[in-house]
């Protein structure tokens, strides 16, 4: 059972989803809550080409943007704290300055679980640029990470995406240990065209769940349009409120060129994701 939750917030609507979901987990598990907001200093002060006469302009701009971001993060923490207190939870608040992935990575080690928002996609010219934090955090996560988005009730059926890999096994074990969704039905979904083999793989997960007295149902689905789309369809069909899956680390160049399954799933699956290495 989790005892301490870390919730990342930056005031964006995606991080608000993390606050909502994290607090619903905390209410059910009685876990302590820490909110962390990070002033992303490196992204503001990073070197960039400047023309003659503009070095001072850049320095002044950086100071202003840092002050503005500091204020925004303080407000985000205060809003999250108010919401927690309304639910009877007294949270700890932490404002850090530095690289968000490094600060989250360090702080994560003090907790059982990190809840974080999905990657924000700018919709207007006034939205902040897309953050690389989520990808970087997932790459080096020392604890399971829940990425909030979609259904935020914190209860309902759980979909376990299982392919028999070490990462998938570790994610399932971490999920069971977390005590989240304790009484909710579980669907183990194995995706692949070799039905017999995928059935065997799904059964491994079923056996593990049975060991921990968790009732589950197995589904073997053909690959169809691809892993991400098949899982997204399954999550909708089963009205899942959480999807559990392992995260693969792969070389950055390969990920840049060909994308990653995790990234596709993050973009397509309409429910929160419980992820572990």
């Amino acid at each position: 059972m989790i005892k301490s939750l870390l919730i990342g917030t930056n005031g964006s609507r995606w991080s608000q989803a993390a606050v909502d979901l994290g607090l619903s987990f905390a209410r059910k598990t009685n876990a302590a809550v820490t909110f962390l907001a990070v002033v992303d200093v490196p992204s503001i002060t990073a070197g960039e080409p400047v023309p003659i006469g503009a070095a001072g302009i850049k320095a002044e701009r950086d100071v202003k943007l840092l002050a503005e971001m500091r204020e925004r993060m303080e407000q985000a923490l205060e809003r999250a704290a108010e919401q927690a207190r309304f639910l009877g939870i007294e949270p700890k608040l932490r404002l850090a300055e530095g690289s968000p992935e490094e600060e989250l990575g360090k702080e994560m080690q003090r907790h059982d679980l990190l809840v974080i928002g999905k990657k924000a996609v700018p919709e207007t010219d006034r939205d902040p640029p897309p953050s690389k934090t989520l990808t970087a955090v997932l790459r080096h996560a020392s604890r399971p990470v829940v990425v909030a988005g979609g259904n935020l009730s914190g209860e309902g059926p759980v979909l376990v995406a299982y392919d028999g890999s070490l990462q998938a096994a570790h994610a399932l074990s971490a999920f069971v240990a977390s005590g989240l969704h304790a009484g909710d039905p579980i669907h183990v979904v194995a995706v692949g065209d070799d039905a017999a083999r995928m059935g065997e793989i799904a059964q491994q997960a079923m056996d593990f769940l049975a060991l921990h007295d968790r009732a589950a149902e197995a589904h073997v689905l053909p690959l169809g349009k691809g892993v991400a789309d098949t899982l997204a369809d399954a999550a909708s069909r089963l009205s899942a409120s959480l999807m559990v899956m392992g995260v693969y680390g792969q070389p950055r160049v390969k990920e840049m060129l060909f994308g990653s399954v995790t990234r596709s799933i993050l973009a397509r699956v309409p429910v929160p994701l419980f992820l572990a290495h």
């Binding site: 960039e48 400047v50 850049k58 701009r61």
Partner: peptide, 15 residues
């Protein structure tokens, strides 16, 4: 942005 000093100034003010 570095072709002329005001380019960067305008960018900074916009940001």
């Amino acid at each position: 942005y570095i072709g002329n000093a005001p380019n960067f100034m305008v960018k900074s003010i916009a940001e």
